[in-house]
Write a protein that binds this DNA or RNA. Structure first.
Lengths: 207, 207
DNA sequence: GCAAATTAATGATTTATTCAAG
DNA sequence: CTTGAATAAATCATTAATTTGC
């Protein structure tokens, strides 16, 4: 398939399933640390990098919106056609609606309140300096260490995660408050493999 | 001004002058390594990070295009007004020009041929791990070392630059072909402090 | 069945827009 | 009002599906 590494990443089925599960569970714009965790987790199922995760969510979100827009446009067109018929029947006057039906940008979808997150977005963000340990496929108790370089503080922070109980646990390495949106030393429920919540409709109301 | 570091970067006058000089000299979308070099250079004049340089060029380019577009639009509007007057005088017929004057996207500005550069763009790119040396303001012979982490090769490459003869020289650290657009071991002319070329018009013809 | 040729999906970049600090 | 920062939209480019002729 990929002789000596093809040019672009192709998600494996398992990776894709997990990504979609995360998306369904509400994740849209994962923070840098979330991306790190997701990447670490998914790298168990095949080659993957943080930027792939970043791009995946960006694209998936965008194309979701796109799909919704098109659907709404069709509905609008239908509605207007019906209105038109009505008008022809009722013989009514000038109704030069200035709504551009062909313009795909109709719905003003509710952007989430611009994140005041302290977590810098991925592309400003730490590069992941894996120090091995992730490729250790022999052991069941996987452990994943990496460094996070914060260009803001100019510091390198050590990170570590352990795979246990069929889930990843973040290990507190240097006991300092991680100043991250997710509290440290807690089992992150990023990977609800026991998926119960399947919200197919994520049409959060705009504004 | 900035008690313990204000939230966003403000370029110093010198930094700004150099950035503008670089821009005038033709740089629009600096590669990762260019950003590193520029950042290293400018950090001599004040606190600065790679992302600042990245954003600066992005914004400057965008707002330049914006300015040009507005100018062209005004010209077009004037032209059309004049045409309109002509038409009224010459009493001529249907001339429903389908050019949308209000549409700000008029000029098809010549995007540079999509970079086939091997150099990954900045946000996929190395974070700059400065290892000190840049703050050594006492000595005239400045030396600047840093590491470049490539998420693609998962390798960390050592880099080094030395300030001498009123310019920066890239030092070849590990003797491997840097596989970078600029040949190593050569004085980079990124900072033409002896600026002679002042091309105010960068209207490269489209396509 | 099976490749070459087309088309559809989708990963990766770049540009446009928006927000808010100063 | 200017402009650094962040995000969304548009675009490009490559891979996968699918069709087509044999």
């Amino acid at each position: 398939m990929s002789p000596a590494g093809s040019s672009r990443w192709s998600p494996t089925t398992e990776q894709l399933m997990i990504l979609e599960e995360l998306y369904r569970s509400g994740i849209r714009t994962p923070s840098a640390s979330q991306i790190q965790q997701i990447t670490a987790h998914l790298s168990f199922y095949g080659r993957i990098e943080g930027k792939n995760v970043f791009y995946w969510f960006q694209n998936h979100k965008a194309r979701d919106r796109q799909k919704l827009r098109r659907k709404l446009n069709k509905q609008l067109q239908l509605q207007q056609q019906q209105q038109h018929q009505h008008q022809q029947l009722q013989v009514h006057q000038h109704c030069q609606l200035n709504q551009d039906i062909t313009n795909p940008f109709v719905g003003n979808f509710g952007y989430p309140p611009r994140s005041t997150t302290q977590d810098f977005p991925f592309y400003n963000s730490p590069s992941l300096l894996f120090q091995g340990g992730a490729a250790n496929t022999a052991e069941q108790a996987l452990n994943c260490k990496w460094n996070v370089y914060s260009p803001q503080s100019n510091l390198v922070e050590k990170k570590e995660m352990t795979f246990c109980n069929y889930g990843w646990t973040l290990v507190d390495v240097n006991h300092q408050a991680s100043s991250c949106c997710t509290p440290p030393l807690k089992t992150l429920d990023l990977f609800p493999l026991t998926a119960t919540r399947v919200k197919e409709d994520f049409t959060t109301p705009p504004k």
